[in-house]
């Protein structure tokens, strides 16, 4: 979650209003909701319970979870107003996430 906090904290109020951050995880909804409230940030959490969307995107780390279950590969994608990918980053080490400044730069370049 730390990357979400980092990005949210760096966006100004106006930018938060002008861009939608959609966070996709296999977490159940109630749990994501708590996270969203705890962070008090304008994220839209959506639940990809069975990883169907992550799979369609090619973003599944097979057997990568703590109990050997499939988990999403951490990834950040910046889409412009027309829904076209302008920038993306997929982690090769799950401890590593894109630098919020890089994401911000991509958002501000739209």
């Amino acid at each position: 979650m730390s990357e979400l906090q980092g990005l949210g904290a760096k966006l100004s109020e106006a930018e938060r209003a002008g861009v939608e951050i959609v966070a996709v995880s296999p977490d159940p909804n109630e749990r994501s909701q708590k996270v969203a409230e705890g962070l008090r940030l304008g994220y839209r959490f959506v639940a990809d319970r069975d990883l169907a969307v992550a799979r369609r995107y090619g973003l599944v780390h097979a057997g990568g979870g703590p109990d050997g279950q499939d988990v999403p590969r951490p990834a950040t994608v910046v889409l412009d107003r027309d829904g076209v990918v302008r920038w993306f980053s997929v982690s090769r080490n799950f401890q590593v996430r894109p630098d919020p400044d890089d994401v911000l730069r991509a958002v501000r370049a739209l």
Partner: peptide, 11 residues
Amino acid sequence: KPVVLVFYRGY
């Protein structure tokens, strides 16, 4: 609106 789509592993 532009969208930042973040895939993460869970909480």
